[in-house]
Simulated scan of single mutants.
Amino acid sequence: MNAILSQIFPILYGICFLALLWQAFRVMGQGFRAISAPGDRPPQRANAGVPSVPGAADRTGRLTIHPELLDAQGQLTDEDLLTVRFSGDNERPAFPGDPG
């Protein structure tokens, strides 16, 4: 029984390795095909007639607004928003109640 298992495991390992290697090359091939080559025509978009904001467009060509910034009516909120700033290593740490 032990001799049979010692012969089967390397074969199963090899089959799994080849299957995973084949799958990895398939996925990488899809990624390489997604990159446009020089001279390719830009893809036709379904929302070609929708105006977009230049410089602030995402993959769909439309401005992305996070849902957290909308109020109950779906409009941009005018509330003050909490912001977080990460200081550098060379700055003095700020403590609560510290003037400045």
Rank of each mutant, 00 (worst) to 15 (best):
A94M: 09
G55W: 11
P54L: 03
I11K: 11
F95D: 02
Q7V: 06
N90A: 06
S36D: 15
S6L: 10
G14R: 07
S87G: 08
P93M: 02
P99W: 03
L69Q: 03
L81D: 00
Q73S: 11
Q44N: 12
E68N: 11
H66A: 08
D78N: 05
N90G: 00
G97N: 06
R59Y: 06
G100V: 00
F95E: 10
L76F: 01
F95V: 13
E79G: 00
F95A: 09
I11R: 14
V50I: 13
M28K: 13
R85T: 14
P10N: 07
P99S: 06
A48I: 12
P43F: 12
P42K: 13
V84A: 00
G49T: 12
S36C: 04
G14K: 06
P43G: 12
D78L: 02
Q73E: 15
D40L: 01
A19T: 12
L76Q: 03
S52K: 02
T60C: 01
I35A: 13
P38Q: 11
N90H: 07
Q30P: 00
G55M: 07
L81A: 08
F25C: 09
A56R: 12
A57M: 09
A94D: 03
P51G: 09
F32R: 14
R33H: 11
P96K: 03
P93C: 00
A19C: 08
R41E: 15
A19V: 12
A94T: 04
Q7L: 13
E68F: 02
L70K: 02
I65G: 02
A72G: 04
N90Q: 10
H66Q: 12
P38G: 05
T83I: 08
F9L: 11
S87A: 07
I35T: 08
L70S: 05
N2E: 10
I35M: 14
P67T: 03
T83M: 08
N47Q: 13
D40C: 09
L18E: 10
T60G: 07
A94Y: 07
I8K: 03
G55L: 09
L12F: 06
D78P: 00
D71L: 00
I4C: 01
R41S: 15
